[in-house]
């Protein structure tokens, strides 16, 4: 039986080929293949080409099941930059690739757990929607933690 190949298209319209049996580790892709055979190109309108290249690299890994945990950890460890990890986590969440999502989120959590509030906001691009007084009131509920 010949191996079927799927084509994924990133947000910036780059095409990536991947063997179907590897691609279906993504539950999202699996459902699409099941639904319509996904003969055409599968568009991934939220994933940019750099991130998709990483996802494809991950899906193409040839690890024995018992080494898989370590591989995933190492895979995300090597991409220690928060923006990259966020893109990767978001792509893994969208594509429903649980292990990759778990590992990427765990890594981000590890990186930010000792950040100051300002550093967290900057890293995750979150706007502070409170006035300094309001913020102080929230902090004062758990003064010991600061």
């Amino acid at each position: 039986m010949s191996k079927k190949t799927l084509t994924l298209m990133s947000k910036d319209k780059q095409l990536f080929n991947i063997e179907e049996h590897l691609a279906v580790q993504s539950v999202t892709i699996r459902n699409m293949v099941k639904e319509d055979g996904a003969s055409s190109v599968i568009p991934l309108p939220r994933v940019d080409s750099e991130t998709l290249a990483l996802v494809i690299e991950y899906l193409n890994r040839q690890q024995a099941p018992e080494e898989d945990e370590d591989y995933v950890k190492k895979f995300v460890d090597e991409r220690g930059e928060i923006p990259t990890l966020l893109e990767l986590a978001q792509a893994a969440l969208d594509l429903d690739i649980k292990k990759l999502m778990d590992a990427a989120c765990m890594k981000v959590a590890d990186l930010i757990k000792d950040f100051t509030l300002e550093e967290v906001r900057e890293a995750l691009r979150i706007e502070n929607d409170r006035t300094p007084e309001e913020e102080k009131a929230i902090r004062d509920e758990f003064q010991w933690a600061f």
Binding site: A89, L93, M101, C105, M106, V108, A109, I112, K113, D114, L117, V120, R121, L124, I126, E127, N128, D129, R130, E135, I138, R139, E141, F142, A145, F146
Partner: peptide
């Protein structure tokens, strides 16, 4: 997903990040 994986003390602090 990221918040779920943070230790409790970080969460107590990060309540102040945004509403």
């Amino acid at each position: 997903e990221i918040l779920k994986r943070l230790p409790v003390k970080s969460l107590i602090q990060f309540r102040s990040v945004c509403k």
